[in-house]
């Protein structure tokens, strides 16, 4: 029974590893930390897997479990966010892509400045969820989502301007 369950879990993760890896990358400050986070997220997903009843999309379930796990890790650690450690992943992106490196840099660096919950809000917004769905996933009210997203947009505007000025 457990081996069947493990098999279906493995295939589910393999189909959605882009989501898991991207989320862990955006929350981690180094490659080692990224691997640790990924393990924690996998464990949370595995623990919640028996309760997952396909009522929501697989990706929505993964976002909910993964983001809440990453936010709680951050709350425990009480880390101060800095942007420097993203350089490792930025290098790898440069290596693989030549088209829109600037956009990827802006995405990573700008999101890197945000607090854990704010990061989750932006990620879910970029993923195309509406405020109601975001609120459900992160267990906050719809109005709170809307207020926070407006604040984040203003903050990102400033961050992007600063980053662009620094790169000139």
């Amino acid at each position: 029974m457990e081996s069947d369950s493990k098999k279906s879990f493995v295939s589910l993760i393999q189909q959605n590893q882009g989501i898991v890896n991207s989320l862990c990358r955006l929350y981690a400050t180094s490659n080692e930390e990224m691997k640790d986070y990924r393990q924690d997220v996998m464990l949370s997903l595995w623990k919640g897997f028996p309760k997952y009843r396909e009522e929501s999309k697989v990706s929505t379930w993964i976002y909910r479990v993964a983001l809440n796990t990453l936010i709680s890790i951050y709350r425990k650690k009480k880390q101060v966010l800095i942007t420097e450690p993203f350089s490792e992943s930025i290098e790898s992106i440069h290596f693989q892509n030549s088209g829109s490196d600037d956009d990827l840099l802006v995405l990573q660096q700008a999101i890197g400045f945000l607090k854990p919950l704010e990061k989750a809000l932006v990620i879910l917004y970029l993923e195309g969820y509406d405020n109601k769905e975001i609120g459900k996933i992160l267990s906050i009210s719809e109005s709170n989502v809307s207020t926070k997203l407006n604040r984040i947009k203003t903050q990102l505007k400033k961050t992007v301007k600063t980053l662009q000025n620094e790169s000139r």
Partner: peptide, 11 residues
């Protein structure tokens, strides 16, 4: 679109 690209890279 950048977020989509980011996910593809990390997949």
């Amino acid at each position: 679109p950048t977020w989509e690209q980011f996910k593809v890279i990390h997949a």
